[in-house]
Structure formats: structure tokens, C-alpha cells
Computed example of a mutant assay.
Amino acid sequence: MNTRSLVRTWDILPDRGQATAWVRLTEGGLTARGRAVGLDPEPYWVTYALETADDYVTSRLFVTVETEDATRALDLRHAAGRWSADGSHRPDLDGALDCDLGLCPLTNTMPVLRHGLHLHPASPAHRFLMAWVSVPGLEVSASHQTYTPLETQGPAAVVRYESDGFRSDITFDDNGLVLDYPHLATTLTR
């Protein structure tokens, strides 16, 4: 089995922070752990662990957020097509395959790898339902997102991301990891 271990660090623009992810990619699977620090709306730390099942489908995201006044945690799980947040079934998320952790460029990777969006420029748009997690609040909601492959630039590819009126042309490397996400993140390490 081909396994790649990668580390990526990004400047996170909206909250004036930084994030690092330690990623292990296998054929059809991904596990990662990450840490981030942000300053807006208040100083906070985020720690997460992400696991996928076959075909890069999210199976678990465990997140903690620490602020001056509190520590919060979220255990988001997905199995047999059903989602739960801290043990409570979330029928509004059923049908989603992936999580999307706010201000975390890594969680854009799963749909890109599953559909080879970083390998096939100018292919049709793909519409997804995601289990979106806000940071630093850790509120979970359903999010409809569209990914449209636009072009390749050497070993990199540009994919347009759209959700709720927001649009950004994200550059991914040949591993499916974000290099540049305008208005959100810029890679510091490759």
C-alpha cells in the first residue's frame, strides 16, 4: 500500500492565525491531526483529529477549541450514511460524505481526492452536502458546496469553490492539498 506522510502549514487570513496539519494519505484514505491558533474574534487554539473510511469519506472529526474562558469539544461521526454530533443523530447531515472544519484548508481535500478534481481540469462541477463546523464556536450545520475544476498549472490544479454566495479559486497540489485559498489561507510549507 502506497502511504505518504505530509505536513502543511498555512497562514489563515480571516482570523490572523496559522494552522498546521500532519497528514497520512493512503490509496482511498486519509488520517490527519492538526493545530491552529487564531486571534479573531478572540484568541483561541484549535486541535483536531480527522479520519476517513474508504474513498476518502469522513468517518470522524474530533475537535477541541480553547479560549480564555472555556474549552469546548465536538465529536462528529459518520457511519452507514448517518451523522452524529456528540452522540446525537443529525438527520440534517445525512447524505453528506464529508466534514468541513471552518478555517481549515485540509478539509477541502476529501472531495478533491475522491473525484480526482485536481487531476481533471475542465470537468463538470460537483455539488456536495457537507457537515460544516464553525470555528471557534463548533456549531455544526449542513452546507451545500460546489467544486468546479478549472485548469492545471504544472503539478498544481485550480478548483473553484462556491457556497452561500462565497466563491474562491483554490489551488491544490498533486496530493490534493491546498496551496493557495484566496481570502482564507496561504501555504507556508510544501
Rank of each mutant, 00 (worst) to 15 (best):
M1W: 02
T3N: 08
T3D: 09
R8S: 13
T9H: 09
T9P: 09
D11E: 15
I12F: 04
P14F: 08
R16F: 14
R24N: 13
L25W: 01
L25E: 03
E27M: 14
G28V: 00
G28L: 02
R35D: 03
A36G: 04
V37R: 11
G38S: 05
P41L: 00
T47P: 08
A49F: 15
E51I: 03
T52M: 04
V57W: 00
V57M: 01
T58I: 14
S59G: 12
T64K: 10
E68Q: 14
D69Q: 15
R72A: 06
L74G: 00
R77M: 13
H78R: 13
H78Q: 12
A79M: 11
A80P: 12
S84H: 02
S88G: 13
H89A: 14
R90D: 12
R90Y: 05
L101Y: 00
L103N: 04
T109Q: 14
R114H: 06
P121W: 05
P124M: 11
R127Y: 02
R127E: 09
M130K: 06
M130D: 08
L138N: 02
A142T: 03
A142K: 01
S143T: 15
S143R: 15
Q145Y: 02
T146Q: 09
T146E: 13
P149N: 05
E151G: 11
T152H: 12
Q153N: 08
G154P: 00
P155C: 01
P155E: 05
A156T: 13
V158Y: 00
Y161D: 06
F166D: 02
I170E: 13
F172W: 11
G176N: 06
V178D: 01
D180R: 14
Y181A: 07
Y181R: 08
P182S: 02
T189H: 01
